[in-house]
Each structure stands twice: as C-alpha cells, then as structure tokens.
Nucleic acid binder design. Structure first.
Lengths: 156, 156
DNA sequence: AAGAAATACTTCGATAGTCAAACTATCTCA
DNA sequence: TGAGATAGTTTGACTATCGAAGTATTTCTT
C-alpha cells in the first residue's frame, strides 16, 4: 500500500479532527448509558475507572491511585469508602508500612473489571471492523501515536 | 489495501483495546491540564465543551444544548449563567417565540472555540503523523466506524 | 536513641455542580 | 377564549470535590 496523490492530507485532518472531538465527547456518555442498563447501575463512570485502575494484578496504594485518576487524597478516601461499602474493593493495611493502604478487588470487583475490559474490546472490534491485518497495524500505530502525544502533553 | 492471512487480528485487539482505554481515560485530563496553563484557566472542561457545542454557526436553544451535553434543563440554566457571567456566551430571547432562549458566542467565546478546534487538530495531526494518504484514509474510516458504533449505542 | 520532620491516609468544613419538582411566561389549538 | 403544552428558571436537597487540620507511623538527624 504505497501510492498517494498531491492532495494534502490536511483535508482529512479537518473531518477526522471533528470526528475525534465527537468521539471523545460521546465516549463518556456511552459508557454511562451502558452502565445504567447493566447490573452495575449503582456505579458512576468514575467509580468504574477507579476500580479498573486498581486492576486485577498488582496491588496499588491509595495515593498512587489518587494520582492515577486525578483525585485529591481526601477525595480518594471517600471514593474508596464508597467502593468498599458497595463491595467492589478491599482495604488492606500494608504489613511493612502500616501507614499505607493497599487496595485490592473483591470477587465482584473482578467481575466488573472483566466486564469493563470486554466493553472496550467490543469498541475496538467495531473500530477494526472489516480491516485487513495491514490496516489493523496502521490503526494500532495511530492509536499509539495519539497515546504518546497525550502522555507527553500530560507530563509537561 | 485488501485483506488476507488467517492470523486473526484478535491479537492486535488486546493491546489496541488497552491503548484505547488509556486514551479515553487520559484525554479529559490532558484537556484539563492544557486548559489550566492557558488563558482560559477559569473554565472547566465541561464549560469548554458547552461553548464548543453552541458553535460558531447556527444558534442553538438552551434545551437543544442540554440534550447535546447531557445536562438537565435546570443544570443547563446555571451552566449558562456561569458562561454568561464569564463573558463567553450571550442569551438572546427568540423574537418568534419569546419562551425560547437562543445562545450565541461572544467575541471571547469565538476565540475559545477556535482554540479548542486547534487543540484537537493538533491531536489529530499527531495521530496521523508519518502516514501516507492511503493510511490516512484507513484511519479515517476507523474513526468513523468507532463514532458510528458509539452513536448507535447511545441511541439504544 | 530521642526528637523533629516527613509520609500516608483520614476527618472536617466549605463549596460547587447536579437533579427533580414547583413555578412563570409564552404559545398552540380547539 | 381558555386548557393544555412548551421553554426556561428558581428552589431545595444531595453529592463529589477540595484544602486544611488531624492522626498514626516511619525515617532522618544528631
């Protein structure tokens, strides 16, 4: 797939950029809507992201998590209170340093984690729909480009 | 760009999906951060989106706008209050139907509109960086796929 | 090893954004 | 003309958030 024309891709950018805006704006509401209909109706999108950030695998501390989801430590305390109370998250005081609180998912939390993962996987599939492997590679590269760009912006 | 190979792109999906999650999660904070550093520090991301939704071109009514940004009418009233007070938006009572409030951007609002547009255009450029026209076409198609998928989900 | 400083988290008080319900003004149509 | 519908606003209650002060624990300093 080489070739090309003189018509600058700048033309694409305009519409693509608009699409991207719509996309980012809608994504939250789609997630919100999907949530409200499912078995996790009592959770907000932020709750879900917090649970997702805790993740299945490595234990995280409360303050790590606060940084990850951009909450103040105090807000994180109450956010965790909520999630503990609803049965998605467990507080585990660290043995080695009894100040720190390690967070883990309960069984229910793990179920939600997988559901969230599946939700996004379906989105991805929709995005790649009908594409060849080559095209999929391109797409992946583009997503990576964007991710890196945003991460650089965040660091500044 | 045709098709080929049996090796399912499912492999791609996993990582791409993860990238997509990170991306959607980060996008808000990048925007927030960019906002805080710029000359529009007094605005929230939601404010900016509301202003952007009002748009330069066609006048919108308050309730149209409320639907677009997923706010209740009453919340929209106070959101507009904020934006009027800060000098980005104008309320114009419709001549033909004096119940309805048409919304328009002030000069300052238009400046913000363009800045927001430029911000996203840069994101898009980063995403397309180094791509041929063909590749760009694929990417555009993918974005469109995703947008449609999300919009369908929203409608359900 | 004792006291001072730093760290991790929590509690508290204040604030801001949200919604639903009640309200006002205006329009439609029968 | 009057009953009901519509567009937006006001009100009251609620919730998430933050910053500041507080508690418990650890680390550093001398």
């Amino acid at each position: 797939m080489k070739k090309n024309s003189e018509t600058a891709p700048a033309v694409h950018y305009r519409t693509a950029s608009q699409t991207l805006i719509d996309l980012l704006a809608n994504a939250v509401w789609v997630e919100e809507g999907a949530l409200k209909r499912g078995p996790f109706a009592a959770l907000t999108v932020r709750d879900v992201h917090t649970i997702y950030a805790i993740s299945m695998y490595e234990e995280k501390t409360a303050s790590q998590l606060a940084r990850m989801v951009h909450l103040s430590p105090s807000a994180m305390t109450t956010a965790i209170d909520r999630l503990v109370q609803k049965g998605y998250v467990e507080r585990r005081r660290s043995k080695s340093d009894r100040r720190v609180v390690k967070l883990g998912l309960t069984h229910q939390g793990r179920i939600l984690y997988r559901a969230h993962q599946a939700f996004h996987l379906k989105m991805t599939q929709a995005m790649f729909h009908g594409f060849s492997d080559d095209a999929a590679g391109i797409l992946e590269k583009a997503l990576d480009n964007l991710k890196n760009y945003l991460q650089d912006l965040l660091k500044e």
